[in-house]
Design a protein around this nucleic acid. Structure first.
Length: 895
RNA sequence: GCGCGAGUAGCUCAGCGGUAGAGCGACUGGUUUACACCCAGUUGGUCGGCGGUUCAAUCCCGUCCUCGCGCACCA
């Protein structure tokens, strides 16, 4: 055994020590040659710039639990880790640094030099999160760590781009896209989040009808700053108020111009005045009206959201929100601002940059999704299981309304689009309205490799959306792009479980399923487990601004990684959000200490001196409960109910093992105890601890591995790590029949129930802590031979067995499963107090009895309820009936 | 507007047809053969409202209210 243990568990050194040992012994490596059943997970690759937050902790702890549990079930496990290059996030971080340190923009450096900077930054600061995952205890196969911009991975991206292009699914076109004026790039629909704006304004403005004296059309708009780009106003064709206007012209106030009035079904006559100003360049719906009516498209914004020359000299260069006010003021000055109302609407924001996006027409690459049918079916028919299941609906809904994916980004950091244009025709080609494989011709090269005479070609500037690389993750991490297959892929693909947040169901999960079918011909994973979102105590999302996001590393430093893992998992139900409170982590720490001390108590008893004999009823009882625990845990794992597993482990250890079993067993370690009983009880304690450590290990890997060694279990298992030890199906303690356990459990349940009653009795007489009290038991069935343990558990000096004992009037008594337990109090008898106490008990019992009697007296019940329920009721009636009788008799004796 | 989820003890949540549960908190008492990061005990609930199905509803159905999320619309 190791050196003497300290009173409190010290996670710091223990955790790092074991993590190093596991890594040194190569415990995490996924063995593709293994003969066992394969179990695999690919990590949702965190941003390479990222740092660990509680969401990661939850997510990765679940993955680690699954991986460790699978190993202990004897499976060959691969948990494949890696990071994501995170286009916009990483690029902005480096740009920020450049601005701060050198007052330069990326354009000052040029593409090549800038990218060098990003790579440098990545080498230096990237992957912090990987180290943090190690602190958490994650058992990833680090030898296979991947990065989405690894050489092989990047070749994959080009390959699939070429595949999809040649298939006609990738095309280029001028479309209205979501434009981020801060990041200066297009975004996909998924990267835009609608936020409701409580403080918007609705401006009512009026345009004069051309050629008529003093006739005006009133228009309601939230965006007067786009007025200069108006090329029409529109009304609903059925709107009689404006019927005569259609086809006429109105005068746009500035720059002053006659624009037509058109009719379009899209206009809601109920909204505002029923007249819409049409700005085809800055609104999706307006764009469509523009196309239908062949309207001119005037873009009045620069890419950064300031107004351009089309807005006129007084607005040029002005920010869009400033311009909104300025335009309203100008209209007011012209007498064309009728009124301004407070208004609430939703505006699309860039998810990353957190600024309102602009709908903008630009040249972008798009993808028509492949294998949508296969993907939708796989989830609908259950080939891929979603947990919680209701996310199937969310998924199906999105798949139904699926839109082409804008995959090009106007960034530098990322996978540059593998398209080259012949130099002398580059300008024309880059501006061609639409482009795809069928129309491209030989002046365009799309390939994994550049054209041979690369000097005569110009490469497309754009890079691909980061998610365009993420959707290949499950297989591109397992084989090279030029290989048909690989040993890893053969063994571990499709992966078993995917653990992720529901917020990226469209970004990532859905697309991975399509990619899996497209390039591997099968699903990428069998189960998807969606975690909840970790929120603060008040239910708010964790955010930097609110400062409500605790640093997991601080929590690990204060309480230990095991405490963090256990504490968080115990309160993390599947499917609903987690309200985080660090008192829960404290509980995890307390639990670790509890286990530590119970193990220490065992350690203090020393070695066995002889062979164990037949266990006591208490020992048999705890063995029985251990068996139940193992079964229940198995079921909870099968249902992916991790919080339930944690709760079962917690209750078993703290309540059943420590509070009940250990306390009842202490008598076996006294100086005058029977040596065989001592050895037997120690053997049972060892057996229970050993099995319990196995069951707990996935949740609290470090402390369990430490105690595994300290308790000498590793020696018993050929010096094997706990993490590599398979959990046996066989009972923890040999040679005990099911009947023995069942019988013992029944007796023990009666004793424990009685102990609680007697403790209660003591407490109600203010004697809870008094160990000098004596009890007299009139035992049920005439005998009771567990006096020693009973006395220990209730805290009594002496217990006398007196069958048929007739107590003096007013002696407090408790009617228990083991019999009547009297508490003779010399000279302290208070008849009234005892009357009151028992009167209360009687009342309770009578109420219960009444309920049962009423039920059994109801013919509807007795004729229709199933037999076992009626039987149960009969039993209950018997029980409460007896109790009422006994209590009545007791009260009668009191007079 | 459509869809999803949640509403159970002061707090965080289990339970999802057959006696309302746990942990924390609060309160009382306690250093006992490990642990005060501990032990014992107590307190605390018309299971969001209203209807319905059923012998029986926290649980199933309908409806309404409150909160959260997703999608669509938003001039």
């Amino acid at each position: 055994m190791a050196e003497e243990s300290s009173k409190a568990y010290q996670p710091g050194t223990v955790e790092s020590r074991w993590y190093s040992k596991w890594v040194e012994a190569d415990c995490f490596r996924g063995n593709e040659q293994g003969k066992g059943e394969a179990y695999s997970i690919v990590i949702p690759p965190p941003n390479v710039t990222g740092i660990l937050h509680l969401g990661h902790v939850l997510n990765n702890t679940i993955q680690d639990i699954l991986a460790r549990r699978a190993r202990m079930e004897g499976k060959d496990v691969l948990w494949l880790p890696g990071t994501d290059h995170a286009g916009i996030a990483t690029q902005s971080k480096v740009e920020q640094k450049l601005r701060k340190e050198q007052q330069k923009t990326r354009h000052d450096l040029g593409r090549e030099a800038f990218l060098e900077n990003v790579w440098e930054w990545k080498e230096e600061h990237g992957g912090i999160i990987i180290e943090q995952l190690k602190r958490l205890g994650c058992s990833c196969d680090w030898s296979r760590e991947r990065f989405t911009m690894d050489e092989n991975y990047s070749r994959w991206i080009s390959k699939i781009f070429v595949d999809l292009y040649e298939e006609g699914l990738i095309y280029r076109g001028k479309r209205m896209v979501n434009w981020c004026p801060r990041s200066l790039t297009a975004l996909s629909d998924e990267e835009v989040i609608m936020k409701s704006q409580k403080k918007s304004k609705l401006y009512y403005i009026r345009y004069r009808v051309a050629g008529e004296q003093d006739r005006w059309v009133e228009i309601a708009t939230t965006r007067p700053e786009t007025l200069m780009g108006d090329t029409a106003v529109a009304v609903n064709p059925k709107d009689e108020r404006y019927a005569d206007l259609v086809g006429k012209m109105v005068i746009r106030p500035f720059p002053e111009k006659e624009i037509p009035v058109v009719a379009d079904d899209h206009i809601d006559p109920e909204f505002g005045t029923g007249v819409l100003k049409v700005t085809p360049a800055h609104d999706k719906a307006d764009f469509e009206i523009g196309v239908k009516n062949n309207l001119e498209i005037i873009d009045v914004f620069h890419p950064d959201g300031t107004l351009n020359e089309h807005a006129g000299p007084e607005f040029e260069g002005m920010d869009r929100f400033k311009a909104r006010e300025a335009a309203a003021e100008k209209l007011d000055a012209m007498g064309q601002l009728v009124k301004v109302e407070d208004y609430e609407n939703s505006v699309g924001f860039s998810e990353r940059a957190d600024v309102p996006i602009e709908p903008r027409i630009s040249m972008q690459w798009f993808l028509k999704y492949p294998c949508t049918k296969e993907a939708a079916e796989a989830v609908a028919n259950g080939d891929i299981t979603f947990r919680p299941a209701h996310f199937k609906k969310t998924f199906a809904h999105w798949m139904e309304g699926i839109q082409d994916w804008c995959i090009s980004r106007q960034l530098w950091w990322g996978h540059q689009i593998p398209v080259w244009y012949r130099k002398e025709k580059a300008d024309e080609l880059k501006n061609r309205e639409s482009l795809d494989a069928s129309s491209a011709g030989s002046d365009i090269h799309v390939g994994i490799e550049p054209p041979e005479d690369e000097e005569n070609w110009v490469r497309d500037d754009d890079v691909l959306d980061t998610w365009f690389s993420s959707w290949l993750w499950p297989f591109a991490t397992m084989r090279n792009s030029d290989e048909e297959s690989s040993a890893t892929l053969e063994k571990f693909y499709p992966t078993t479980d995917l653990v992720t947040g529901p917020d990226i169901i469209f970004f990532w999960v859905a697309r991975m399923i399509m990619a899996g079918y497209r390039w591997q011909g099968e699903l990428p994973f069998k189960n998807v487990f969606f975690t909840g979102i970790v929120r603060d105590k008040q239910g708010r999302k964790m955010s930097k601004q609110l400062g409500n996001s605790p640093d997991p590393l601080d929590l690990i430093a204060d309480f230990g990684a095991d405490a963090l893992r256990f504490g968080l998992l115990r309160i993390a139900p599947s499917g609903t959000d987690v309200k985080f409170d660090d008192s829960q982590i404290k509980e995890g720490r307390n639990f670790a200490t509890k286990i530590w001390n119970a193990a220490r108590y065992r350690e203090m008893q020393g070695e066995l001196k002889g062979a164990p004999g037949t266990p006591s009823i208490y020992a048999l009882d705890i063995l029985s409960k251990l068996e139940t625990l193992q079964k229940e845990i198995e079921q909870s794992y099968a249902d992916y109910k991790f919080n339930e597993v944690a709760q079962l482990l917690y209750e078993f250890w703290w309540s059943n093992y420590c509070d009940w079993f250990l306390e009842s067993a202490k008598g076996d370690f006294g100086d005058d105890a029977d040596p065989e009983a001592r050895d037997t009880t120690l053997a049972v304690m060892d057996a229970v601890l050993e099995r319990f450590l196995m069951l707990l290990h996935p949740f609290m890997p470090h402390i369990t591995e430490e105690l595994w060694e300290r308790s000498g279990f590793n020696e018993k298992h050929d010096s094997e790590f706990l993490m590599n030890t398979a959990i046996p199906e066989t009972p923890a303690f040999e040679g005990i029949s099911r009947e023995m356990m069942a019988q013992a459990s029944e007796s023990v349940a009666a004793i424990y129930e009685s102990v609680s009653r007697v403790r209660n009795l003591k407490a109600s007489y203010g004697l809870a802590a008094n160990k000098d009290v004596k009890f007299i038991i009139d035992p049920e069935g005439g005998s009771f031979d567990e006096c020693d343990v009973f006395a220990r558990l209730v805290g009594a000096k002496e217990i006398t067995i007196e069958p048929g004992y007739e107590a003096e009037k007013g002696v407090p008594v408790s009617i228990c499963a083991i019999g009547k337990v009297y508490l003779p109090l010399d000279g302290l008898i208070d008849v009234e107090a005892e009357k009151e106490r028992q009167g209360k008990e009687l009342k309770k019992a009578q109420e219960e009895l009444k309920k049962v009697v009423a039920k059994l007296g109801n013919e509807n019940f007795t004729s229709r309820a199933p037999a076992h329920v009626i039987g149960e009721m009969e039993e209950r009636k018997q029980h409460w009936g007896n109790r009422v009788e006994e209590l009545k008799q007791m009260l009668g004796n009191l007079g």
